[in-house]
Design a protein around this nucleic acid. Structure first.
Lengths: 129, 129, 129, 129
DNA sequence: GTGGTCTAGACCACT
DNA sequence: GTGGTCTAGACCACG
């Protein structure tokens, strides 16, 4: 797990954490340890509070990305992931906002495609590091 | 201006307002009145707080979508819109999150394209109403 | 809202709160105020911490019983309640445990029906108080 | 004894164990060996901690389902089972919660009866395996 | 005044 | 040593 938190970012730490964890799963997939670091150890590693990690973990359990037991948190098999309605709604809202902003700022569809491509490339490069 | 606010939504009202105004500009463009309703009247029309309208207007001024004068707020000429760095960053962040969620939930690029299409169609239909 | 918390009960306070709120909705339904007391005021009324109330409220939002906005928490229209899988699973697990315990302790089906009846009657009586 | 433990489940392992043992008694009754596997052997068979098995056994002794002697744990004669107050209270609490959830989610009494039926059928089918 | 987030620290249940 | 729960208190965003 390679996790980076930017404390000066305005997006909540727990949200950053959620996406960092998802990113790790997407990038490293099956080669990752199935059991996640304990809330407390990850918290101290990242220099943040235990409760913040806890919130991120539990949100991911709600989303179906993780599972929890009395022994800790685990990465769910990707195949068993069912797309939750809330997640879809959140994606649609973001897409709508992107569409409106693109229209008003004159950002072409092609530009957006290029941005997406560069995001993907950047993610792939992180794997190879 | 056709503006709909959902006070029971989790997204801040001022954000909703910003996108509703942008949407109107995108959809109706030049056929719109250039001067916006006064802060007070819009607030009372929508049944929301004056400060909230103020915040939305001022943010849009910062983004370059509106301009402010002694006599009120005006829609900027679209041609003069400069893409602000903040806006681009916000769009990139949303795109990154969408990309990660799409990967982890197995949403194909095609599905996302379809979603985008339906968003556009839905917006066009609103014009014809 | 008539809410009673038993601090000596082993079931978590936030769980007790969840069921107390649901009970109020079931019993008093439409005659209830749609907006709930603020997390902080309810917390101080009950002599418990704000975060505990918060947790109960948010869980109920997840279950679809409440909705939240920037202005506070609201009771959802009962008609719009969709039964979440998690809730059904929890109910099934409880039923299974009840069934096993009933079998092993020789509690007849009739006795269980009687218990259920008395629970219902007790709840109705609380309304009339 | 056919015992299945799901270590990734949220319900405590010792609780799972307790119900699995009770289930075996209900299903196979007198045809079961009266003496239970030793704490150590069951723990290693199931790949769980010794203390966990111990806790489950001791709780069942408290409930009157098992008895303990120098030589190990034994299944009590069912006829001698006295219904403990704690057990009844636990059952009543579960029933109350089920009742409230059923009311609020619009689950009819008939549906609950059907669920109970399918639970019973499922348990019977396990015997025949 | 509303909730959201984050921190700090304590005690408990489970393994 | 794992997470769960609860408390206390601070600061911030929103309205």
């Amino acid at each position: 797990m390679f996790i980076e938190i930017n404390p000066h970012d305005e997006t909540p730490i727990y949200t950053q954490l959620m996406y960092q964890i998802k990113k790790n799963i997407v990038l490293y997939g099956d080669s990752l340890e199935k059991d996640l670091p304990s809330v407390r150890s990850l918290a101290s590693d990242l220099g943040i509070n235990m409760h913040t990690v806890n919130k991120a973990y539990n949100r991911l359990v709600e989303e179906g990305v993780l599972s929890k037991s009395k022994r800790g948190y685990f990465i769910q098999e990707q195949s068993s992931l069912i797309q939750h309605e809330n997640v879809k709604e959140a994606m649609l809202e973001k897409l709508t906002q992107i569409q409106i902003d693109a229209d008003i700022y004159g950002v072409s569809e092609q530009t957006i495609s290029e941005w997406l491509e560069s995001i993907k490339i950047q993610m792939k490069e992180e794997v190879e590091k």
